[in-house]
């Protein structure tokens, strides 16, 4: 009896797929520890480019960009998580009502509009209403595309938590708000945290929209990296890229572990 799940050649293709996805990242991470100033010759292991990122001539620029990036990412992810949690309660626990399908389309709309179009539209919008482009406009634009990413794990989690606990609480005269706050919210915590982390990474990573609405003189890490890379890939850029890569990997891993722990309990 042959294995119906088996197709010759699928395993090597999978390995190839992972190789393609990881090879460039691994190589850049390895070369960021290169002693040599020439970015292609290997001159031994060294942390000097990491030291350069924090203390070198470009350190103040990177520090400001990092502060901007993290401030915006925390703010946008928090705001998007609150909005997405409210939306998830409405979509999974408020029965039928008018406009439900349209709301789902609206939540996912930021994923469907091409990023370049969102970027252009945001720019002309902020200029039309007379809002000076800067940190505030980056934040406002980031919340929009963070919402669907926060919504996904939160609504998935809410669907898997049965509402019997809240019903029991309400039988004991809890108000809907108390049932939500004391029962649903603690049960939902892993989903909300996953949603927050994913929204956080998405905001931290955004280049295109940020580049349009950031205004002159304001930089986030991706826009600062893009500006540097246009003149050629320097070793300190590889170091800072590797650090940012590390932040993304940690956030995704945390989100994944939280999600798994939540399922097991």
């Amino acid at each position: 009896m042959t294995d119906l799940r088996h197709f010759t050649g699928f395993r090597p293709l999978t390995v190839l797929c992972l190789f393609i996805l990881y090879a460039p990242l691994v190589i850049v991470a390895v070369y960021s520890f290169n002693e040599s100033t020439s970015i292609t010759r290997w001159g031994g292991f060294s942390l000097k480019w990491y030291v350069d990122v924090f203390t070198g001539p470009e350190a103040p620029k990177f520090r400001d960009a990092a502060i901007n990036s993290f401030t915006i990412a925390i703010g946008a992810a928090t705001c998007a998580t609150l909005i997405a949690t409210a939306a998830a309660v409405a979509m999974t626990r408020a029965g039928r009502f008018r406009g439900k399908l349209a709301s789902l389309a609206l939540i996912n709309l930021p994923l469907m509009v091409p990023e370049i179009v969102t970027a252009v539209a945001s720019l002309v919008f902020f200029i039309t209403i007379g809002l000076t482009t800067g940190l505030l406009t980056i934040f406002l634009a980031h919340v929009v595309f963070c919402i669907p990413f926060a919504y996904l794990p939160i609504s998935a989690r809410m669907q898997s938590v049965p509402d019997v606990y809240e019903q029991a609480a309400m039988d004991l005269y809890a108000t809907p708000w108390e049932a939500f706050r004391l029962i649903l919210l603690p049960l939902m915590a892993p989903g909300i945290l996953s949603g927050f982390l994913l929204a956080f990474i998405i905001s931290l990573d955004d280049f295109l929209i940020t580049n349009f609405v950031k205004g002159a003189g304001v930089e986030t890490l991706p826009t600062a990296i893009f500006g540097s890379v246009k003149q050629g890939i320097k070793p300190n850029i590889m170091a800072i890229s590797t650090l940012l890569l590390g932040v993304s990997v940690v956030c995704v891993t945390l989100s994944w572990l939280i999600g798994r722990a939540g399922q097991k309990r």
Partner: peptide, 16 residues
């Protein structure tokens, strides 16, 4: 589930 029945539109207001 509809235990928060009637609150749907209000909860979706921020997204809209």
């Amino acid at each position: 589930s509809d235990i928060y029945r009637g609150n749907g539109p209000r909860l979706l207001l921020p997204v809209w």
